[in-house]
Design a protein around this nucleic acid. Structure first.
Ligand SMILES: [Zn+2]
Ligand SMILES: [Zn+2]
Ligand SMILES: [Zn+2]
Ligand SMILES: [Zn+2]
Lengths: 140, 140
DNA sequence: ATGACACACGTTATATCGTTACGCAATGTG
DNA sequence: CACATTGCGTAACGATATAACGTGTGTCAT
């Protein structure tokens, strides 16, 4: 490993395949759903998927949705080559009907959370913010 | 059962036992950890725990921590008899070292999240906000 | 009372999600 | 070359959650 590996170009074969599966998916995929989609490309067992996901999440190309036990490709504009955006203080808006996920990077929210932690003397490492409900289309 | 069932007094035997296990625990417990603690009180299988948890979460006596796949008793002052506080827009601060969980009910944060949803024309149903890191004691 | 229903419960099995452990091949370094 | 590192494949296992079915018990209208 030389320097910081962040770009899509630095991905290994498996990582690229998993990222591809998530990128072309319409919504979040569970690890096993990814596995199923990649079976005819040689994937056979969970560790192959989880290892790739671990790296992809680490570099910020993929996010994990805790409330869904699933993963999505980052939708940040030029994220496909950039490291972790901001400080990983991302909010996700998840439609419970159509599974559409919107990724939100709101600095006011980030400030708010930072403040909350600060008040408690808490050394913030990672935040999970997931809003569930119905998107405009589905609640119409 | 008549009217709205919210108080601890309205709980069934199993629900009361699960709530008791969570209340006396120092930190969050997984469903299986609860099961283990209740084995000598007659619990034998996961559904008994999950069914009780479902109800307890529904009435707000227990919260689920998505990022931990675990559950905590509500720490709201008089929650032991009251229904869902606010609109379930609770933030949890979770220490990754000592597992201590702090439950926070911040109206500014709630407004913030409500606003975020509003901007997206999103019908908010439930929010998950979990802050992970090190508590004051553990980061010292 | 008797049947219909709802509810809590017990039990078995199964589904879904995630990790450990082991071995091997390719690569890079002294 | 010896040696460490990295990515990968595979088998087995562990952890989390639900489905499906049956039983008893109370309530209530007939
Ligand atoms: Zn992103
Ligand atoms: Zn939708
Ligand atoms: Zn609470
Ligand atoms: Zn701590």
């Amino acid at each position: 490993m030389s320097g910081t590996p962040v770009s899509i170009q630095d991905l290994t074969k498996n990582q690229a395949m998993v990222f591809g599966a998530l990128s072309t998916a319409e919504g979040p995929l569970s690890a096993y759903a990814i596995l199923d989609r990649l079976r005819d490309q040689g994937f056979r067992a969970p560790p192959q998927v989880y290892r790739a996901l671990e790296k992809l999440v680490e570099v910020g190309l993929v996010h994990r949705l805790e409330s869904l036990n699933a993963f999505v490709a980052c939708s940040h504009p030029a994220c496909s080559g950039q490291a972790t955006h901001g400080h990983e203080m991302i909010a996700f808006i998840i439609c419970e009907s159509c599974a559409k996920v919107t990724e939100i990077n709101d600095s006011a929210l980030a400030d708010q959370l930072t403040h909350l932690a600060r008040v408690q003397d808490f050394a913030l490492r990672k935040t999970t913010v997931e809003l569930r409900g119905l998107c405009r289309a589905c609640s119409a």
